[in-house]
Nucleic acid binder design. Structure first.
Lengths: 202, 202
DNA sequence: CGGTACTTTGAGCATTTTCAACCATTGTGG
DNA sequence: CCACAATGGTTGAAAATGCTCAAAGTACCG
């Protein structure tokens, strides 16, 4: 059953999977400009749910208009490019969750959103709107809401970033960025062991 | 700099990211039929490395032939479909790593590969070839090699599946499948608490 | 053989979860 | 204006899952 395709205009939306026992994973975040439901290009059913996080505006494309648009080679290429972009987002998220510690994950998410919004000139003075609860952030990063809270408190104490009431204020962008790249030791990280260095040069 | 696109014919390959301090994440596994390097369709540089896991055969497409092929609408659609499939793989991997416990992650990987190979009739009697070290499996699932080992020993003791010397033998497919869906309690999982059930029905 | 790469295992430890309680804010109906 | 319920944030103590490190075992290969 073909469905609509949406382009987000303002606000934030996310795509999530839910497990039988209630666990939830938020597998992608959408910022303005992102297109939702690209898999319906090929009339495939969506496997996941998309939810608006807070108030959003979007542009809806019905399946017929979409097919007409896809006749145009340029438009088709553009959609392909959006798909490639979405895939890269997913891959980076995998790496982030698989190999980052909690503070790095949160930092990476904050930086990622900062950069995406900034590229669209939707950001002023390193502050932006993030309409997600700490539980939702946890579901996105593979953490519990409680632990997200602890990390955010730590960011706050260290004056790295403040996240309060759906607003993010980045106080130390360079440091946050280093954290987001796994280049800065977190609270308790040890220095690399000798064989980890050995592995690097091999 | 446009590069080649490859279709894997036999064997296994993977795409990985590496962090500055040596940590590695294997963000996608390729089985026969999968296409590697799709992002070069749009002349984008690849951000990740692709590695063959053991002996492989593949078909290489140089950028020129690729562009000629893409003239054909049907072929272009086919590539789009491959991209959508790749994206779905990534999303499922995110959910798996974010919300599954270690045994579920390993089970999900084994089942996923089993199903993908079976669809291509590359599997006989629930046994197949998996040319990955336990360390590589860990890098794929966000675990350490040592812990992957413990999970595999447990699968072996419980006679769920045997993974030895790059060969997987599934002994209890239904149970492995239940584990892979998060529907079966692992070693130490408690029964769902009442409010988790409450969340489910809400 | 010696070497290399991988697996296996144990002991101790760290990060993160669980569970529980309490607080803050906001909206709602009386 | 005041309960009040509902939602989300904050925090602590205990538990656990998974990690680190180290050592020994196995298998293969030149």
């Amino acid at each position: 059953m073909p469905r609509y395709v949406y382009q987000l205009r303002t606000g934030l939306a996310y795509q999530s999977h839910r497990l039988p026992d209630g666990r939830r994973a938020i597998v992608d975040l959408f910022t303005p400009g992102n297109v939702v439901g690209l898999e319906t290009i090929l009339s495939l059913r969506a496997s996941a749910t998309v939810t608006a996080a807070g108030p959003v505006k979007y542009l809806a494309l019905d399946p017929n208009s979409l097919h007409r648009l896809m006749e145009d080679r340029q438009v088709a290429l553009c959609f392909t490019s959006l798909l490639i972009e979405a895939r890269r987002r997913s891959e980076e998220l995998v790496a982030r969750i698989a190999r980052f510690e909690a503070p790095e994950r949160v930092a990476a998410m904050l930086i990622d959103l900062h950069d995406r919004l900034r590229r669209r000139r939707l950001i002023a003075r390193s502050s932006y709107n993030l309409h997600l609860t700490q539980q939702q952030i946890g579901d996105h990063l593979g953490l519990t809401g409680a632990h997200v809270n602890r990390v955010l408190r730590w960011f706050s104490r260290e004056d790295i970033a403040l996240v309060k009431g759906y607003v993010v204020i980045i106080r130390d962008l360079p440091r946050l960025r280093r954290l987001a790249c796994g280049e800065e030791a977190t609270e308790t990280r040890r220095t690399p062991t000798s064989d980890r260095i050995a592995e690097r040069v091999s």
